[in-house]
Design a binder for these strands. Structure first.
Lengths: 235, 235
DNA sequence: ACAAAAGTGTTTTAGTTACACCCATGG
DNA sequence: CCATGGGTGTAACTAAAACACTTTTGT
């Protein structure tokens, strides 16, 4: 089966940076690595690409293994290819980032995989070059969210404008005027106002909204304008 | 040296989409593949990642092989990992795109490598999934150029505003008001006006400009605003 | 003297920011 | 009845778009 003779064959891995939002801060999901080297240390969920699967399929497999979720937003981030990144054997890793609704994630799974959620500011030391992967993922999510409506992937089907605003404020580490925020968000045409309210956050309650899926898919690739001053954003 | 036993090892390649601008249209550089399969057909410049080099190094090596240029703008684009993309043997390819000053490219090299420049609208049939790579690169260059000043990498050290405008108009397939264009470009603070003129394009001549390297490097990551209506751009 | 491309300024329009009060409700 | 968070409108300002004429010079 080796038709290109004399060429080096090497290990190819995938690693997933899995983001979730708990209503207050953006978090990532890490596991305790269960094999050597670095066994027992915090790590991204990952795995080797198998002979019979594409790289994308490998990333999806690995993500589903840990979360038991299907159809999740998953995007290729960057391929890390330094020769020494895995000290045991040359391994190139294709990193992906995923955005999941943290409520759909079952806590039970954390026990099975010795996994845990970490706020971005409290990420523990990670194995190999995974610190770089997380940094790249943080940059990418901010970059992309400044231009495209990806953050909705982190919220449940029904959400309120205050919830959405907290999410944006947390991702961009800024505070936004709620009047202007609501104007900009509603001007995108991506939201449908529902009749019922979320009463958990206040006595008056805040109206629920849901995504207008049609507009969402057609406008996903175009630039949107939810943030103030996106021009001055350093990304 | 195989420490992770029972895992699949596979071939890893790099492929480069090399862009150049001849003053009229955006072009890419292709070669005639000199080994089987698909020997003699048009192909991107590429090669296998060797045991002792990083993936980035492989991309740089391959680019320098064909162009004899160093220090060129080279950015990782996407990793293509379908199982069947190379019919001979499973090969995952990390694609990169490069922006070069077409004047620095020596025509002699084209003869050595049986290479040629093709306008984006006249790219011939390519091997494997390289058509997808070129499409991804076209999208990426437009996307990135709409937000960041990468197109200067395609121009010589000294260039005129009319030349720059033709470049933008060609990349975005649009026509731009020259008064507004010059206002926006100069407002970026990226350009230094020189004293001499390019007289090849007109009797009066157009002033040369060069990049303010300092501002260029510090502002490279922030969003700039040279295009009209970037919001409505489909990318 | 005229053709051909370079260069420049102003008005109009649209979009963004800043800002403060009333509303609804549970306790 | 009051504390808490939700919801909304307007005026001031800033940025973008539209638009046309003058300059230079080689032939």
């Amino acid at each position: 089966m080796q038709k290109y003779s004399k060429q080096t064959r090497l290990l190819l891995a995938v690693d997933c940076i899995i983001f979730g939002f708990d209503g207050e801060t953006l978090k990532i999901l890490l596991i305790k690595r269960d094999f050597e080297p670095e066994k027992g240390n915090w790590s991204l969920m990952g795995g080797f690409v198998q002979a019979n699967e594409s790289v994308d399929q490998a990333a999806n497999r690995v993500l589903t293994q840990l979360t038991n979720l299907q159809g999740v937003y998953l995007e290729q981030l960057y391929t890390f290819g330094n020769t020494k990144r895995d000290p045991l054997e040359r391994t190139v890793s294709v990193s992906y980032f995923a955005l999941i609704d943290i409520n759909k994630y079952e806590a039970q799974l954390s026990k099975d995989y010795h996994a845990d959620w970490f706020p971005l500011k409290k990420v523990p030391k990670l194995i190999f070059d995974q610190q770089d992967m997380v940094e790249a993922a943080k940059k990418r999510i901010r970059y992309k969210a400044a231009l495209h409506p990806i953050l909705f992937e982190l919220l449940p089907e029904k959400f309120t404008l205050p919830q959405l605003q907290v999410l944006y404020e947390s991702v961009f580490n800024t505070s936004i005027d709620k009047r202007n925020f609501s104007k900009r968000v509603l001007a995108t045409g991506l939201l449908i106002k529902l009749d019922d309210k979320d009463k958990t956050g206040s006595k008056r309650g805040a109206f629920y909204y849901q995504l207008n899926k049609q507009n969402y898919y057609t406008k996903f690739q175009s630039f949107i304008n939810i943030l103030p001053n996106p021009d001055t954003l350093q990304v």
